[in-house]
Design a protein around this nucleic acid. Sequence first.
DNA 1: CTTGTACCCTGACCGC
DNA 2: TGCGGTCAGGGTACAA
Length: 263
Amino acid sequence: MPELPEVETTVRGLQDLTGSRIERVAVNDRRLDVPRERLVGRVLSRIERQGKYIVCGLSDGSSLRVHLRMSGRLVRFASPSERKYTRLSLLLDRGRLDFVDPRRLGTVEYSQDGLPVSVGIDPTERAFTRQRLGAIVSGSRAPIKVLLMDQRRIAGIGNIYAAEALFAARIDPRRPGKSLSTKEIAAVHSAVRSVLAEAIRKLGTTLGESVSDYRQSSGESGGFQERLHVYSRNREACHRCGTTIDRIKQGGRSTYFCPGCQR
DNA sequence: CTTGTACCCTGACCGC
DNA sequence: TGCGGTCAGGGTACAA
């Protein structure tokens, strides 16, 4: 569910919790290995995004890393419909933080040393230049869409934004990375940046109404779903050329693209 | 090293 | 209403 823009929106929505002290920790899922005794009494010193991870730095230098995977969200206070899916609650001196995750694929891990998560370059940062993307793309025969989604190389792009960026760049998702010209790499680079920036501006993509669908930490929907050109539009007409949008499988995931204008 | 597949888990939706 | 199949914003452990 959540990709870089959704995680970024979530983190921004939780900033006012920094400085809060953890008073109590409730774990409701055996799959989560959270050392409650190490958390209680600690203060949330910072809340930030690292790739698709949400990292809560604690006052003793340790940190709590949350990965939302497919259906997780962090909310201020679980609503009645979210109650039964609340897997972890941090009760704070000023408010509370609930980890809601219907599918239970999300992860929460405690890091004693608080070192950053090991992931690739953040595509929203200045260091993510077209040269940098070129080095990643030119060095592999893997399909460009798979490369964009490889978190060890680039951290934060998922299934929606990989598809949308390639549509914007007019590149066929099946093209081997190696086959892209310098000009095409520049187009992909520019598309990735603008699509992510716009999605952040729209506060993420909310696809449906179910409890598994992404919401902001406030519970509100995002707005980028109105801007989707290919994702989830199988068999509909391309907004640009009218060709029927196609859905194929790549790396076990659905890829949506327009066979008419993506080459 | 690469690529592909199964799997983790739950819920929604579709056709019969 | 029920049943079976498919699909889902992700990532990992394998096998080939």
